[in-house]
């Protein structure tokens, strides 16, 4: 049967008094494409930041492939401020740093593109290969790891080929058009060799043609790299076409979850989000 890759257990993320994410639980099974949707400020990106270890949640835990990677309970001044359920409080505290979480197999892209701007496209992807380097500082500096370096470069070149970025490999990342920058972010994330790929609004700012290409690309990457995908997206066509399941957040709370058909006909979702989204 399907195996759970990612599991969020009653995550609450409070910024001072603001409940950015409120008692949010979800799970993602191997091979699925799952989407998180919801209006602006619903807490979607915050959920990503919790999963990847950028923010420690105020309360709750995250399991990845059966291992608890994040777990926290209200501490310090948050003990007083905590406004969530008292019965959901975690007993463990586990905090893995974002780099450790990436090494475990979760990679992500960013809503507000975060490329290594002044480096080339090739270097951007090559850097993602550094985390598994076997050579130490000395052997790397004295180029005693020729084979390894060669392999890293070869894999990078292959990946750029697959993502159709090979022709701009030597260009500075910030000089790329927007759509290609988004694709480079995906290339860079995949270069870390993830099992789970988190995409934060990958189609933002893309025209219909590019969005269409993106759908094909995600399908292909999923096949080629045996990925599980969790994404945040506002383009409803894309979401409905590509997702196996959808979670809907509103003001940090989960208001619905299920298959695209189910979500499209859910009254609460239409009221809170879809109605608005279609007006836009």
């Amino acid at each position: 049967m399907s195996e759970t890759v990612l599991k969020l257990n009653r995550i609450t993320m409070q910024f001072g008094g603001l409940m950015a994410v409120n008692d949010f639980s979800m799970d993602v099974n191997r091979g699925e494409v799952v989407a998180i949707i919801g209006p602006n400020g619903a807490g979607k990106t915050t959920a990503f930041n919790v999963i990847t270890g950028v923010y420690a949640p105020t309360n709750g835990s995250v399991d990845f492939c059966g291992e608890t990677i994040i777990s926290n309970r209200p501490q310090g001044k948050m003990r007083k401020l905590y406004a969530g359920d008292a019965d959901s409080i975690c007993d463990r505290v586990v905090r893995k740093t974002p780099d450790r979480i990436t090494k475990l197999g979760i990679a992500r892209t960013f809503q507000n593109i975060r490329l290594f701007k002044s480096l080339t496209v090739f270097e951007n992807v090559l850097i993602a290969k550094h985390m598994n380097i076997k050579a130490n500082l000395f052997s790397a500096a004295f180029m005693l790891n020729r084979h390894e370096e060669h392999r890293m470069r070869q894999e990078t070149a292959q990946l750029l080929e697959i993502l159709e970025l090979a022709d701009v490999a030597d260009e500075v990342a910030s000089s790329l058009p927007y759509g290609k920058q988004r694709r480079l972010e995906i290339a860079r994330a995949i270069a870390t060799g993830p099992e789970l790929l988190l995409l934060d609004e990958p189609a933002a700012g893309m025209n219909p043609q590019e969005t269409n290409d993106l759908i094909h690309l995600i399908h292909r990457l999923k096949q080629d790299f045996q990925l599980t995908v969790l994404m945040i997206e506002h383009h409803m066509n894309l979401v409905m076409e590509i997702s196996d399941r959808i979670y809907v957040l509103d003001f940090g709370r989960l208001i619905a979850s299920g298959t695209p058909d189910h979500i499209q006909n859910d009254k609460r979702v239409i009221d809170a989000y879809l109605g608005v989204a279609e007006d836009e």
Partner: peptide, 18 residues
Amino acid sequence: RAFQAIREDEIAAESMGI
């Protein structure tokens, strides 16, 4: 290269496993 990644963007570098 990892050093330069940190210079460019710490959060992105960390998300690349650095």
